[in-house]
Each structure stands twice: as structure tokens, then as C-alpha cells.
């Protein structure tokens, strides 16, 4: 019965190491459960002479009882470890890192979600564009004064970093068949030096709807839904005539100032309005460049600067903070 001794020793060794309830459970199964060897030992007992049988039998029962007691004791011990020791609940918790989405991309996602809920597709376009897509196809011929507002970074003759997401209008029209409605988010680049409201790189979201009958009314209705959902039901929308070579009629769209409610304050330059995007009906020439017949389709398009909208939404004063990515800035957005 040396094996019994070994069995007992290995039990003692293992119970010492046991620190979790799952280990305890395993131990219990191994030593007093179905997998235990007590049956095996009792069988062996039969082979022994009667006097030894009595001694060993007693021993077996004693050890088994002891094991059960030790296991029970261990169980109680494990169960109450935490309760027994005096804890100081004012000690800091084991709080881990909290992550956050970048405020500009968070804003982008919110905007996209609104338009997706209105049935818009999300498409993408390249950041390196050709002059054709970025300018010519959008009715901005070389030496057009509108190119001044969009001074661009050139990579090679005819190739540049896109100055707006509008080239995606052409790409989308080439790819899809009307009717469709899409939004295209992405990075854009302009040769503007960094200051509080300008950055050589920024994000835009382009919107494009092409169908048989589209009017300024549809554009206004759609953007009003957007403004209400994004800024709040109490905010008003104002359309002003504007100019973009690739839309006609064109409009600048303002939202009533959220700080003063439209009365005029410092945040809105005392006008009561904040400019948020440019929009209009797709210019017939743009349809021609995209291979569409302007007699047969109409469309509206809009483009908004995500940084600008994010700055309004979060009250951020300097666009450079977005690009600096100080974690002390970023962590403030961990509730979104």
C-alpha cells in the first residue's frame, strides 16, 4: 500500500498549491470524486491478510475522511479569502486604459451614420487625384479664378493631392447608375499654412444624389434633416446663394448659432449664423464630363468640412489640436 502513501503525499502537495476555486474543483474530482483511487485501494484491501486488512481499512477511511475535511477547509478558506482580510475599499481600483475615437473621425462617423440612415451609400475615392477629376471634370478649367481658393500640392504634372472630395462625384457617377445617393468621406489637402482655422490637411464629406427629378427643395429638405439630427431639433438652417463652378444654382448653408440661438454673439461673429457647408444642384457640364445626359438627370451635391463641424460641435478653438493628438486632448472624448 505504498501507493496510498504516495497518493496522500501528492494530495497534500497539490492542496497546498491550490489557490483558486476551479483548481479546488479539479482537486476534489481527482481525490474524492469519480476519478479518485479509493475504489482501487479498497479492492486491493481484499487481497490482504485479515489483520492487515483491518489496519489498512481503518487507514483508508481515516485518510479519506481527512482529505474530505481538508478539502472542505480549503474550500471555506478560498471562499472567504477576500471577506476575511480587512480591505481598504478606498484604495485605487485596477482601472485600465480608456480608449477614445478621434474627435474628427467621431464627427465623420456621426455624419455618415445620419446619411446612411437616410439610405445613402458610403463610397471612397483616392487621395492622389488627377487634374481632370479634381478640376476639369468639375467645370474648373485651368486658370479659373476658383483655383485660387484651392491652391494644391502637385506630385507630378497632372497629379495632385485632392483639394476636395468633389472628384469623387465624377468617380461615383462613372461607377454607379442613377438613381443613387452617396456620401464620400476623406482627407483633402490645400496649400494653406497652419493657423487656428486652416490646416494643409483636413477631412471633407461629399454628398451626391442623382435621379430624374431633384430640386433645391430636396437639397434643403435633406440638409434640414441632417442639421436637426446632428445639431438638434431647435437649430435652423439658412440657404444663401454661393458660387461653386460645379453646382448651379449654388448655396452656402448656415446653421443658427447654438450659443445665442441666432440672436448674435461672439461665437457666430454677431450674425446669429454659422456656415457649415456648400451645396447646390449638379452643374450640367459636370454631368457631361461624367458621361451623363444633363437633359435626363438632375442631382444635388454638398460638401462639408468635418473639422469645422467638429469644432462647432465640441467648441474647439484651434484646428491644430486635432493634428497634435495630445492624449490629454484625446482622452476627453472617451465618453463618445
Amino acid at each position: 500500500m505504498q501507493e496510498l502513501e504516495e497518493y496522500w503525499e501528492s494530495f497534500q502537495e497539490e492542496i497546498k498549491k491550490t489557490t483558486t476555486l476551479s483548481d479546488w474543483n479539479y482537486l476534489k474530482g481527482k481525490y474524492i470524486g469519480k476519478k479518485s483511487r479509493w475504489g482501487e485501494f479498497l479492492n486491493k484491501l481484499k487481497e490482504l491478510p485479515p489483520e492487515e486488512k483491518r489496519v489498512w481499512g481503518k487507514k483508508i477511511n481515516q485518510l479519506k475522511k481527512e482529505m474530505e475535511e481538508l478539502l472542505e477547509k480549503k474550500y471555506q478558506e478560498l471562499l472567504s479569502t477576500e471577506e476575511k482580510s480587512e480591505i481598504d475599499i478606498t484604495l485605487p481600483g485596477k482601472k485600465g486604459w480608456l480608449g477614445s475615437f478621434h474627435p474628427v473621425l467621431l464627427t465623420r462617423d456621426w455624419i455618415l451614420t445620419i446619411f446612411e440612415s437616410l439610405g445613402f451609400r458610403v463610397e471612397e475615392g483616392p487621395e492622389i487625384e488627377t487634374e481632370f477629376y479634381n478640376f476639369e471634370a468639375l467645370n474648373i478649367p485651368p486658370d479659373h479664378p476658383a483655383r485660387d481658393d484651392q491652391d494644391s500640392f502637385y506630385l507630378a504634372p497632372g497629379y495632385l493631392l485632392r483639394t476636395h472630395t468633389s472628384p469623387a462625384q465624377i468617380r461615383v457617377m462613372e461607377k454607379l447608375k442613377p438613381p443613387f445617393k452617396v456620401v464620400v468621406p476623406g482627407k483633402c489637402y490645400r496649400r494653406d499654412a497652419f493657423d487656428a482655422t486652416h490646416s494643409p490637411m483636413f477631412h471633407q464629406i461629399e454628398g451626391l444624389v442623382v435621379a430624374q427629378d431633384i430640386s433645391m427643395g430636396d437639397l434643403k429638405g435633406t440638409l434640414e434633416v441632417f442639421v436637426h439630427r446632428f445639431f438638434g431639433e431647435d437649430r435652423k438652417t439658412r440657404f444663401r446663394p454661393g458660387y461653386f463652378p460645379f453646382t448651379e444654382p449654388s448655396a452656402e448653408v448656415d446653421v443658427s448659432c447654438g450659443v445665442c440661438g441666432g440672436k448674435g454673439c461672439r461665437s457666430c461673429g454677431y450674425s446669429g449664423w454659422l456656415e457649415i457647408l456648400g451645396a447646390g444642384l449638379v452643374h450640367p457640364q459636370v454631368f457631361v464630363h461624367a458621361g451623363y445626359d444633363p437633359q435626363k438627370v438632375r442631382g444635388f451635391a454638398f460638401g462639408m468640412g468635418v473639422e469645422r463641424v467638429a469644432m462647432l460641435k465640441f467648441g474647439i478653438k484651434d484646428i491644430r489640436w486635432f493634428m497634435e493628438n495630445d492624449v490629454q486632448f484625446l482622452e476627453q472624448f472617451n465618453t463618445f
Partner: peptide, 20 residues
């Protein structure tokens, strides 16, 4: 006046959309 443009809940034709 652009203020006279009547916002209309757009009657877009059905676009099956996509989910990338």
C-alpha cells in the same frame, strides 16, 4: 430668395444601396 425654397422630404427613388 433662397429662403422661399420649400424644404421637401425628398421623394428619392429607391436605391438598393451597399454595405461595404
Amino acid at each position: 430668395g433662397y429662403d422661399k425654397i420649400i424644404p421637401r422630404l425628398p421623394q428619392f427613388p429607391f436605391d438598393p444601396g451597399n454595405q461595404d
